[in-house]
Amino acid sequence: MQDISGKRVAILATHGFEQSELEVPLERLRGAGAEVHVISLEAGEIKGWDKKDWGRPVKVDRTLDEASPEDYDALVLPGGQINPDLLRVEQKALDFIKAFWTADKVVGAICHAPWLLVETGIAKGRRLTSYHSIKTDVINAGGLWEDSQVVTDQGLVTSRNPGDLDVFCKKLSEEIREGRHERRAA
C-alpha cells in the first residue's frame, strides 16, 4: 500500500454492505495513513452482511447530510447485494457520488457497487469490472466490462469480488496518492 498520510477518504454505505468490502478498505486505508469516515443515510450504526447472514455493525462517522464531497480526496463504495440496491434509489447518495466524479476525485467500487456507477451515469464509456451477475447491467449502461480482478480507468477503481480486496486496496491507494484525475470524455 502507498503512504497516503494526510488524505481523507469517505466510504459510503448503508445496511447490507458486504462485511469485508467495508472493513478491509477501512482498515487498509487507515493503515496507509488516511483519515477514513464511514458515511451513511442515518446516524448510529449500519449492519453488514457476512457471506450468508447478517454480520457486525459498523459505526457511522457522518450522515450524508453532515458530509461534503469537498472534504474528501476519494470515495469507496462497498458492495453486497443489499447495500448498493438501497443506495441507488437515494438521490442524496447519487448526488454525493457524482460530486466526487465531476471533481476528478478517485472513486472505488467493489463487487455489486458498480450498480451505483450505472445509476449515476459514471459507468458509460468507462473500463470497469464488477461481480459477474451485474455484468449485463454495466454493459447496458455503456460500461466497458472486463473480467479482471481489478480495473483502473482514470481514477475509477473497480473490483470483482471480496477475494480481490488486496489488489483493490493497493490500486486504490496508488490512485489516491496520485491525486485528482483529469478525465477525458468517455
Rank of each mutant, 00 (worst) to 15 (best):
M1G: 13
A10Y: 04
A13L: 04
E18N: 02
Q19I: 00
S20L: 14
E21W: 07
E21L: 05
R28K: 15
G31H: 05
A32C: 10
G33M: 03
A34K: 03
E35L: 09
E42M: 08
G44F: 12
E45T: 15
K47E: 14
D50M: 08
D53G: 00
D53T: 08
D53M: 11
V58P: 01
D61I: 00
D61L: 01
T63H: 06
D65F: 08
S68F: 07
D71M: 02
D71S: 12
A74C: 07
V76N: 02
P78Q: 04
G80M: 04
Q81T: 06
I82Y: 06
I82T: 13
N83S: 14
L86T: 12
L86W: 12
L87H: 07
V89D: 07
E90P: 00
L94I: 10
D95I: 01
K98V: 01
F100M: 04
D104F: 11
K105V: 04
K105A: 03
V107C: 07
V107P: 05
P114I: 10
A123Q: 11
G125R: 02
R126Y: 10
L128D: 07
T129L: 11
S130G: 08
Y131I: 08
D137W: 11
D137K: 14
D137C: 04
I139V: 15
I139Q: 15
N140I: 00
L144H: 13
E146Q: 14
Q149D: 15
Q149E: 15
D153R: 06
D153C: 09
S159K: 05
R160D: 06
R160E: 10
D164N: 14
D164H: 14
D166C: 01
V167M: 14
C169K: 04
K171F: 13
L172C: 09
S173F: 09
E174F: 07
R180G: 04
E182T: 09
R184C: 00
A185P: 11
A185I: 12
